[in-house]
């Protein structure tokens, strides 16, 4: 069979709704099958497996959770999420022995510093972009955070 014909057949099957196709010419039998269930064959495997970055083992400041009742009462639209602008490690205080910038229940204004996220030798202070009250701190001190990961819930009512 002409290789070009074979290519054409494959392309035709590829672009159609047909999942299985076979043709016989003399003693040559060609079977083209689109196994749609076996999608894994076509997915790319990431060549590099990233694991979690180094984490400070002694988390000095424990995460403070607000009572869950309080959260349920809030409607979602009143709660503003502050997200991390960078990948790095989340710190609630300016230094290991210092007090946290904010606690649950604190009233804050636009520009209040909430935390630091560090990556490489870059310390990024995250300021609140709204006025409100801290309802929940979503990440534990000294743990890694991803880009765009929510860090704080702020009630803006």
């Amino acid at each position: 069979m002409d290789i070009n014909l074979l290519k054409k057949l494959i392309k035709m099957v590829e672009q159609s709704e047909i999942t299985d196709f076979s043709v016989q010419e003399g003693d040559l039998k060609v079977k083209i099958s689109k196994n749609t269930h076996n999608a894994a064959n076509f997915s790319f495997q990431t060549p590099i497996e990233y694991s979690r970055p180094m984490v400070q083992s002694n988390a000095a400041i424990p995460i403070v959770e607000s009572p869950s009742v309080e959260i349920k009462r809030e409607t979602k639209s009143d709660l503003h999420e502050v997200k991390s602008p960078i990948v790095g490690t989340f710190y609630r205080a300016p230094a290991p022995d210092a007090d946290p910038y904010v606690e649950v229940g604190d009233s804050i204004a636009t520009g209040t510093v909430l935390c630091i996220v560090e990556a490489m030798k870059l310390l990024n202070e995250i300021e609140s972009d709204v006025n409100g009250k801290i309802v929940k701190i979503l990440v534990e001190n000294a743990t890694p955070v991803e880009y765009g990961q929510p860090l704080f819930l702020i009630d803006t009512k």
């Binding site: 602008p85 310390l123 990024n124 202070e125 300021e127």
Partner: peptide
């Protein structure tokens, strides 16, 4: 990430600090 060394000794250090509002 950003130390500058000469003869394996530190000649310069850099610290970047930033502030962000929202994201």
């Amino acid at each position: 990430p950003n130390d500058v060394l000469v003869s394996k000794k530190k000649i310069s250090g850099i610290l970047i600090e930033s502030s962000s509002k929202g994201s």
